[in-house]
Write a protein that binds this DNA or RNA. Sequence first.
DNA 1: GATTGGTGATAGTGTTACTATTATTAAATA
DNA 2: TATTTAATAATAGTAACACTATCACCAATC
Lengths: 224, 224
Amino acid sequence: MEYQLNFNVNDKIYIRDPESSELGRQIVSKAIELIHEIGYEHFTFKKLALEIGTTEASIYRYFKNKHLLLIYILNWYWSYLEFLVMFQLKNIGDPRLKIKTVIQLLTSELPQNSGKMKYNVPYLNQIVITESSKVYLVKEIKEINQAEVFKPFKDLCNTIANIILELDAAYPYPHSLSSTLIEASHNQQFFSSHLKRLTDVKTNQEASVYVAAYLEDLVFRVLR
Amino acid sequence: MEYQLNFNVNDKIYIRDPESSELGRQIVSKAIELIHEIGYEHFTFKKLALEIGTTEASIYRYFKNKHLLLIYILNWYWSYLEFLVMFQLKNIGDPRLKIKTVIQLLTSELPQNSGKMKYNVPYLNQIVITESSKVYLVKEIKEINQAEVFKPFKDLCNTIANIILELDAAYPYPHSLSSTLIEASHNQQFFSSHLKRLTDVKTNQEASVYVAAYLEDLVFRVLR
DNA sequence: GATTGGTGATAGTGTTACTATTATTAAATA
DNA sequence: TATTTAATAATAGTAACACTATCACCAATC
């Protein structure tokens, strides 16, 4: 049986729904590859248009600017991640095992569900690590937050906070611990790949494995 | 007695030492105000030149680009912060109190030492919270790291890691916990000001006070 | 058969991120 | 005092970026 996972993204993020046409899907798909390759700062709509074989103007009919395109991509990722969390936790009763599963999902490359994924998930992973904080660390935070573009991220944070409360109902900072885990999973992976002295990763140790071990240890020291 | 604190910044960061002239000091000082006001993305050398009453070309004689100017500013901050940590910890024996002091320094506005500070420290604080991760979350991370521009940050991380080890010599992740604390102190402050749902901050509760309480609780749960 | 919607092609504007040149002035040195 | 030098101001210019606008074309649909 063939199926495709779709996650609806807030329609304030785009001008035209990129899911609604081949060009739209190409824009998102190739943007992921290009941002992964050259980084968000060097990424431009002109380069993307050239890559796709279309024009800048056509891309502007889908997204107002590259910031919103990045938000779109990250929202897709966060929605997918929350889907995976929900899916994998469905039959788990033990909250300790739930937390372990969540940390695995936060640190390892996400499963390329069914092999027929729309987007390159390992690339997405790297983009999330390196670029995700750039969507909110801006002066316009208030306006973009009012457009509810961070809902998938907040939902994910909330889901994890609830699992934290299952483990320790009296813990006073479930949301902060949750957002700290998510953010730490990104920056510790970045650090253990590029700025090793900021971590305790061993040479030859895989970044994702190291970070998973660190975060698991951390959570179970906090909640015991 | 009048004195000024000086922190030597790696000379690979600048073309001409901004400490060496009035214009240089103006560039750094006004850059802090302008970045604080309009944010790093909107900040340009042209606007800065206009603000100072000089020309773009003159600024380019001091800094190759705005990224390196930001690195310069952050390095000054990190050096100052480490100085304060060292200074305030000098006569403290109890490692628990040391950690508490460090967390206070990480979360509260830094003391405007002696009132005769070169730069606007409260502004610097905000800049660190919002802009600091942008200096390393770039594709060029390898090259800029080789220029040793992150030394003050790594030193600070190391200093805090050593205090962590004083508290629990067997703790296996002192550097990761240290860098997590530093980063969390930034993003939790940002979240509790702008994306409250990602934290457990109460309405009307001061962000810095909340974050200090959260981080203290966290550290002492991890190291007990 | 006429209308509509999506795309391509092309052009143009204002801004950003620089580089280069030349003139002016102040300080250092002969 | 005259002369070199160094720092800055003034100006100009370029390539890339971040858009906006217009028009022609084609395919689907009413």
